[in-house]
Structures are given as structure tokens and as C-alpha cells.
Computed example of a mutant assay.
Amino acid sequence: MSNWYEEISLKTAHILQKIKKHDFIKELMAGTLPKEVFYFYINQDAIYLSEYKKVLAQIGIKCSDENDTQFFLDAATGIINVENALHQNFLNQKSSINEASPTCELYISYLSRMAHTKSLEEGLAAVLPCFTIYQQVGDYILANQTNKHNNPYQNWINTYGGEEFANSVKNAINITNKHTIKASTETINKMNDAFEKASKLEWMFWDSAYNKEPWKL
């Protein structure tokens, strides 16, 4: 398959549109998102990223190409370190939540299972939406906002709409596409399922943050 990512992007475009239209994103772009909602999100994202970087490292270890391995190991350290610094900038002495929300727990557990128990191809497909959707959301906000000089969340927006992150996303896409060239139809179908499910979990993550999702018991 010459461009698997392009095809799966078309199949899952409706999920991305749902994310862009979510109240969390609309209010983030307008700068009106309640601070307590954003702080809840940043806390949960910090918990998520602490596990996501381990997943990326595991994906890298499973790659046979040393350049691919290095990319994912770098992603697990470099990109995450940038995001961690961003978290500290926004949290800044705010009380941290150490417990993952139900949706956060579900998402990190799913990615860990895909990275450790499934094929490399499925693992690649599962971790890719966290790259691509964040870039697309960041680019979408930058292209449509009118308050770049007075949005309290502009540093967050700039991080995901920036060139450095775009280059990392491009590399992740290229590596994943490379592994589809000789993949069987069965493997491609499993990759499609993994990408779609992870994309849905991205929407659920935004939604759970907007609602400050608690454990019901």
C-alpha cells in the first residue's frame, strides 16, 4: 500500500471533525475555556504522557531499522520533555491530580496493550493519532483564531501548531506507511482498526477533560 495514512485519514475524517467541533476545542481557541477545565486536562495529559513515552520506547525497540528506533526513542524523550515543560508552565503551583480519569486509564491501557502484545504494525497505527490529531488541531486553531495576542492558552496552541512538532508527525507517518508496503490485507485491517479506535479515544480524552470526568465510585 503506497499511502496507508492518507486512506485511513479519509476513513476517519469524521472523528477529526468531531474533535474540532468539540466545545473544549472551540473554547480553547476562543480563550474562554474555564481554567479549572484546562488544569484538569493538563493534569490528565501529564499522566497520559508519563505512560505514552514508555509506549513509544517499546515501539522503537520493536523496530528493525535503527533510524526508526532512534526516532521513537527521541520522541519518547525530546517531544515529551517539551510537553512536560509546557505542563509546568500552565500548572505552576496548581495542585496536581495523581489519579488517571477513567478515559485516561482506558487510553493508556489500550496503547500499552497494543505496543506490548500486538504486531509492530498495529502498535504503530495505535500511537499515530496522538501525533497527527494534535498537529491537525493545533494547525486548525492557528488558522482560525483571531486572538493570538491575548489567548491565555496560546503557548499550548503554538506547541502543537509549530514546525518542530510537524516534522516529528511527518516522520511518524512515513515510518508507519513504510511498514504497510508489504503488509497483508489482514494486517492492514488490524492497523485500520487500531488507528480508528485510538482516534476515538482522542475524542473521548478531550470530552472527559471538558467534563472533568470523575470515577463514579
Rank of each mutant, 00 (worst) to 15 (best):
residue 1 M to Q: 07
residue 2 S to V: 13
residue 5 Y to E: 11
residue 6 E to H: 09
residue 11 K to Y: 02
residue 12 T to Y: 05
residue 13 A to D: 14
residue 16 L to T: 08
residue 17 Q to R: 12
residue 19 I to Y: 02
residue 19 I to E: 08
residue 20 K to A: 06
residue 25 I to D: 07
residue 26 K to R: 15
residue 27 E to I: 06
residue 30 A to N: 11
residue 30 A to S: 14
residue 34 P to C: 06
residue 38 F to N: 04
residue 39 Y to F: 13
residue 40 F to S: 01
residue 41 Y to E: 05
residue 42 I to H: 00
residue 42 I to M: 04
residue 45 D to E: 08
residue 47 I to Q: 07
residue 48 Y to C: 03
residue 48 Y to P: 02
residue 49 L to G: 10
residue 50 S to I: 04
residue 51 E to G: 07
residue 55 V to Q: 07
residue 57 A to S: 13
residue 58 Q to M: 14
residue 61 I to Q: 12
residue 61 I to Y: 15
residue 62 K to I: 03
residue 63 C to N: 09
residue 65 D to T: 08
residue 66 E to C: 08
residue 69 T to V: 10
residue 76 A to H: 01
residue 78 G to R: 03
residue 78 G to C: 00
residue 81 N to A: 07
residue 82 V to M: 08
residue 83 E to Q: 09
residue 84 N to P: 06
residue 90 F to G: 00
residue 91 L to M: 14
residue 91 L to E: 01
residue 96 S to M: 13
residue 97 I to G: 02
residue 101 S to E: 01
residue 102 P to M: 12
residue 102 P to R: 06
residue 106 L to K: 12
residue 106 L to T: 11
residue 109 S to M: 03
residue 112 S to K: 14
residue 113 R to N: 12
residue 114 M to N: 02
residue 117 T to A: 11
residue 117 T to M: 12
residue 120 L to T: 10
residue 120 L to S: 10
residue 122 E to P: 00
residue 126 A to G: 03
residue 134 Y to I: 11
residue 135 Q to R: 11
residue 137 V to M: 12
residue 138 G to D: 10
residue 138 G to L: 09
residue 138 G to Y: 05
residue 141 I to K: 03
residue 141 I to R: 08
residue 142 L to R: 12
residue 143 A to Q: 14
residue 145 Q to C: 14
residue 146 T to V: 09
residue 146 T to H: 06
residue 147 N to E: 11
residue 148 K to M: 15
residue 148 K to I: 14
residue 149 H to L: 14
residue 150 N to E: 13
residue 150 N to A: 07
residue 151 N to W: 04
residue 153 Y to P: 02
residue 154 Q to L: 07
residue 156 W to T: 04
residue 158 N to T: 10
residue 160 Y to M: 12
residue 162 G to H: 05
residue 165 F to M: 04
residue 167 N to I: 10
residue 172 A to T: 05
residue 175 I to R: 00
residue 177 N to A: 08
residue 179 H to A: 00
residue 180 T to D: 06
residue 182 K to F: 15
residue 183 A to Y: 02
residue 184 S to K: 09
residue 187 T to E: 15
residue 187 T to M: 14
residue 188 I to P: 10
residue 189 N to V: 08
residue 191 M to F: 11
residue 194 A to R: 09
residue 195 F to C: 07
residue 196 E to P: 05
residue 197 K to A: 06
residue 197 K to F: 15
residue 198 A to V: 11
residue 200 K to S: 13
residue 204 M to G: 10
residue 204 M to V: 00
residue 206 W to R: 05
residue 207 D to F: 00
residue 211 N to I: 01
residue 212 K to Q: 15
residue 214 P to N: 10
residue 217 L to F: 14
